[in-house]
Amino acid sequence: MIPAAFDYHAPTSLDEALSLLAAHGDEAKVLAGGQSLIPMMRFRLAEPGVLVDLNHIEGMAGVTEEDGHLWIGALTRHAEVERSDLVRKRYPLLHEAASVIADPIVRNRGTVAGSLVHADPAGDWGAVMLACGAELEVHGPDGQRMVPIDELFVTTFMTSLSPGDIVTGIKLPIAGKRSGGAYEKLERKVGDFATVAVAARLELDDDGVCSAAGIGLTAVGATNLRAQDAEKALIGKKPDEAAIDAASRAAAEAASPTADNRGSVEYKRDMVRVLSARALRRAAAHAGGEG
C-alpha cells in the first residue's frame, strides 16, 4: 500500500532538525531506519504531514566506550551493534539481542533509538536497556536532557518524549570487571517478534556476590517491563541455583502477558520463568569468567 502524502526534509544538522520539528509541531515525525514507521505509514496507521529524516546528520551513529560509559549513537543500526567487536567482547547482552532482532536485512537499516521511541512492548531493545539501566540523551526545544529508561515507556507505542524531541544517543554503564549478561528470546521463526524474551545483566564483586542485577522483559505487558523484585532476589547473594530460581519466579510474577496466537497467559508467564533462569545462568557464568 502507499503512504499518505507528506513533505520531506533531510536536515544535515541536529539544530536544523530541531527547528523543523519546532516549526511543524504535531504534524511532523522523525524518520530514522523507517523499519517501523514506514510499515505503519503504508497501512495508514501513521499519516505524518512532514517527515524529518535524520539520516543525513553526521556523527549520530556508532558504539564507543568513553568517559566511563558505553555510548550508542541514536542512528546506530541493529547490525552495527551486532557486528561491533567491542560489544561482542564486553557486552554479551547487547550482542545477543542485536543478533535476534527482526531479520538481517531489517537489521541493516533499523536503529536502536528508533526502536526505543517506537515503544513496542515486543521490541527487544527496551528490555535490554531496562536491564542495563540506560539513559537516553534527548535534545528538545528547551535544550538537552537525560531521560532514564525507567521513565521512557508510558504505554504501548507511547513514550514520555514530546513531538519536538530528538534522541541523540543512549548511555549505558560501562561493563565492570566481573559483569555478564544474556538475552533469551523465544520466537516462532526468524524475523518474528518475541513470544517472550528476557534480558539479564549481573555484576559480581570479588567474592562472587551479586552487587547489581538487571532484568528486563519483552512482550509480556503494555510496555517492556523491569522485574525489580527479581533483581532484588539476587542482589547480595551468590547467583547459585537457589537464588536464580527465586529470581526467575519473581520475574514471572512481574509479567502481565495477554493471550494471543503466540500463546496463552499461563504459557507466556511460565516461559518468563524458564527464560529468566536460562539468561541468569549464562549471565552468571559469563560474569564469573566462564563465558
Partner: peptide
Amino acid sequence: PMKSCTMFAV
C-alpha cells in the same frame, strides 16, 4: 542489502 519496500526513493 535493504528492503526497497521500506525505504522512500528520495
